[in-house]
Amino acid sequence: MNLIPIEYYLILSAFMFAVGVTGVLIRKNAIVVFMCIELMLNSGNLALVAFSSYMGSSAGQIFVFFVMTVAAAEAAVGLAIIIAIFRNKLTVNIDEINIFKW
């Protein structure tokens, strides 16, 4: 059986991670930033599943379930926070959320 080499998965996941980090650093919309954070978590998930499958150990796959559950909880809290701030300021642009300086 010809398996796809594990390096391919790792390169893909590293690329996804890099895209996520870049997005967090340069995007201005809070929701898009949050999506980029989800991308970072999912790149971790991909690497975990790939390793787990190649090692024949299920620990990594179980870990992915934990990560997904936590990501869902985080999304619930995060979207609630974004809604709270939108009610008060009518914007979710990070550049305009700037009461605190220096």
């Binding site: 978590l41 971790g44 975990l48």
Partner: peptide
Amino acid sequence: ATGFVVYGIALIFG
């Protein structure tokens, strides 16, 4: 930060 921790854990596990 959690994103970093998860990716770090993935590489440590691997």
